[in-house]
Computed example of a mutant assay.
Amino acid sequence: MDNIAGQKTGLAWATHISVLLLVLIWLIPTVGLLISSFRDRDQISASGWWEAPFAVELTARGRTSAEAVPEGGGFVITGNIFDDEEAASYFGASPGAVVAFGTRGAAPTEFEAGTVADLGDGESLSINPDGTYRWVTPEEPGSRGQRVYFAANSPPKFTLDNYRTVLAADNMDRAFINTLTVTIPATVIPILVAAFAAYALAWMEFPGRGLLIAAVVGLLVVPLQLALVPMLNFHNAIGVGQSFVGIWFAHTAFGMPLAVYLLRNYMIGLPRDIIECAKVDGATDFQVFTRIVLPLSFPALAAFAIFQFLWTWNDLLVAKVFLPSSDEAKVMTVKIADDLLGSRGGDWGILATAAFVSIAVPLVVFFTMQRFLVRGLLAGSVK
C-alpha cells in the first residue's frame, strides 16, 4: 500500500519544507535591503534592519543657549536641547527621550539623564529625559553656550528621502538612457550571432565541429577579468576604444560561449524528422533555420535573453573599463557607485535605495519572460 501510484511519500513534506527554507534564505537579504532603503541614515548605522520597528538609541550633540539669567551670584541658562538646530538635525520632527549626557566627545554618556553633573569650578549641568536642561555657571557664558553630547532613544523613522536623493541626482535620467543603450544591443547582438553558430554546430556536418563545441565549453570557465586589458587594447587598436560600440563588442564576446552552448543544446533536441522533411522538400539550411528551428527555439532564446539582460544591466566592471569616464556616458551602476556612494562613503540607505531603483527594469523583464526560463534551461537535458 505504501507504493501506490499517486500517493505522496513521507519525503514530500521534507521537500516542501526545504524549498520553503531556501526561499526564505534568499528573501531575507532582499527584505533587509527594502527596509533599509526607507530608513534614516543615522538609524541604519545604529541598529540592524530587523530592529527597524523599535526605538533606536542615537548619540548626538548640540549646544545650550547663551541667554543667561543672574541668580544667586551666578548665571542660569535653561531651555531644551532639542531646540538647538544641530541637535534637532539628528532627530527631525520626532525627538526622542534623552538617556544620558556628557560634555566631552570621549564620554558622551557620562551622566544619566535627570542627574546634576558637577563640571567643576562651581559649574553644573542637568538634562532631563524630555530634553530640558539647566546650566549653572559662575561666570557670564558670553555668546556661546555649553557644548553638550547626549544619547536619546529615537522612535522608528521611515522616509522617502533616500529615493528622492537617488532619483533626483544630476543626470540620473541620462544614466538610465545610457544603460538601455548598452543593454539592449548587448542582448540582441549575441543572440543573433549565437543562434546561427548553434544551428551550425547542431545540424550541419563539417570538419572540426567537435573541436569547436569543446572550445565553446572551455570558454565558459574563462574569467572575464583575464580578457579585459587585452580586449581594451584590441579595441583601441581598431579604433572603437572606450565607446558604446566597444562595450557592445565586449558584452557580446563575454556572453557568446553561454549563448552558443545553451542554444546548441536546445536545437539538437528538436525532432530530427522535421528537419529532414524540410530538406527533402528542398529547403535550404537558411530556410530551415529561419522558418523552423528559430521559432521552435524561442524558449532557449528567451532564457538566454534574461541572463544576458540581467548581466549587462547590473554590470559595473565592464562599464568602468569600456566606457568613457565622462558624465554623459555613465550607466546607472557607474553613476550610483561614483557620484552617490562615492561622495557619501558607507551610506547604506543610499546603497539599498539605489539597488531597488536599478533592479526595477530587470524585475519587469524577468517576470515577463520567466515562464520560458526553466523550459530553456532544461532543453536538451533529456530526449
Rank of each mutant, 00 (worst) to 15 (best):
T312G: 04
T284W: 07
V365K: 04
A214S: 14
V76I: 13
A12C: 01
K157E: 12
I189V: 15
R164L: 11
T333P: 00
N128Q: 15
R375I: 05
T181N: 06
L22F: 12
F309Y: 09
K157T: 13
P207K: 14
L20Y: 12
A87D: 08
E139T: 08
T353Y: 09
F82K: 05
T132S: 15
T353W: 09
I336H: 09
G255Y: 04
F54V: 04
S126E: 10
T353Q: 11
Q308E: 04
V334I: 15
T103D: 09
T333E: 02
Y90K: 03
F111N: 09
I44V: 11
I292T: 04
M267Y: 12
L224P: 01
A237S: 14
A12Y: 15
I4P: 00
A113L: 09
A352P: 05
Y261H: 11
R147I: 12
F150M: 01
A259L: 00
V365L: 06
L378R: 10
W13F: 12
A12N: 06
T30S: 10
S326Y: 07
D281W: 12
W49S: 06
S36H: 10
D118V: 09
G346N: 15
L341F: 08
W248T: 04
G346L: 15
Q242F: 13
A175I: 03
S89Q: 12
T78F: 03
K330M: 12
I336K: 05
R371Y: 09
S325Y: 11
I177S: 07
A107C: 02
S47D: 06
G102C: 09
P138F: 13
L24H: 05
A168I: 06
V216R: 07
L11W: 15
A319G: 05
V69I: 12
T165P: 00
Q146R: 15
R39W: 04
T333D: 00
A259R: 00
Q225Y: 13
E67Y: 14
D42I: 04
Y261T: 00
A202Y: 11
H235C: 03
F289E: 02
R147H: 09
A97I: 01
D83R: 15
M369D: 03
H251Q: 06
F307P: 03
A186R: 04
I359Q: 06
A168W: 14
I191G: 02
G74H: 08
Q242S: 05
L316I: 05
S381N: 09
T368D: 00
A52W: 06
